[in-house]
């Protein structure tokens, strides 16, 4: 279950304090994939970061399951002077995965990314596509209750896309996702509940179509 209780989040900018959410409350029923929708600047990414626990609320509480992924496909967390293997090992250590299990994760990511001996070369030498493959593979190597995805999904060539799609579908049999997207087609096909963020308020729709309709009424288009 995901529950947000009287959440206030502001940012200090050069033009004073900007409030993203004030005293926000909502609750998403358990074990459903969640779509976060709203216009640009409605606070989708902020909400995602708050849910992910990488940004802190000014006030209020956020209750989420314990095992939430980092934003899937994140390649900013990779150290470019280190190799992909070292980066994968680092993530393993962060999550307390050691020894034999760590080796299995390394093998899994190396297998999935298919970048050959580059896997043991510094990330700085990779193309953007290679980076994305490693990043996606690393997220998929772990079992999370929820995978967090901010927009972009399809990376790489057609064959790799197909492969990631199969793997992701496999993961979604036992896990759920929290998705930020402007593509209503993606939201419709992947989410079971939508949270519509609009002018600092959040509306939860258990009927995805109704949520999308509400979003489109506020001026959102595909």
């Amino acid at each position: 279950m995901i529950r947000v209780e009287s959440l206030t989040k502001t940012y200090l900018t050069l033009r004073g304090r900007k409030t993203v959410f004030r005293d926000l409350n909502f609750e998403v029923p358990p074990d459903r994939s969640v779509g976060l929708i709203g216009r640009n600047g409605a606070g989708k990414s902020t909400m995602m970061r708050l849910l992910a626990g990488v940004d802190l609320p000014d006030k209020g509480r956020i209750i989420t399951p314990q095992r939430l992924s980092w934003p899937v496909g994140l390649s900013g967390g990779m150290v470019s002077s280190a190799t992909a293997r070292e980066n994968v090992k680092f993530v393993c250590r962060l999550y307390g995965v050691r020894g034999e299990a760590m080796r299995r994760v390394e093998d899994f990511v190396a297998d999935f990314a298919e970048i050959g001996e580059y896997f043991d070369l510094p990330v700085a030498t990779y193309s953007a596509g290679m980076r994305a493959r490693v990043a996606f593979g690393t997220s998929m190597a772990f079992k999370f209750d929820y995978y967090l995805i901010d927009e972009v999904m399809g990376v790489g060539d057609a064959r790799f896309k197909a492969k990631s799609k199969v793997l992701f579908a496999e993961r979604l049999k036992s896990s759920k996702l929290i998705l930020v997207s402007h593509s209503m087609k993606t939201i419709k096909s992947m989410c079971e509940v939508v949270v519509h963020l609009d002018r600092g308020r959040a509306m939860v729709y258990e009927d995805v179509d109704a949520g999308i309709a509400a979003y489109e009424k506020t001026g959102g288009r595909e």
């Binding site: 314990q66 095992r67 307390g96 994760v105 998929m140 999370f144």
Partner: peptide, 13 residues
């Protein structure tokens, strides 16, 4: 697929 164990705050730190 690697399971992530629930650890104590001390262990996480």
């Amino acid at each position: 697929m690697q399971q992530i164990e629930i650890r104590s705050p001390y262990q996480v730190q």
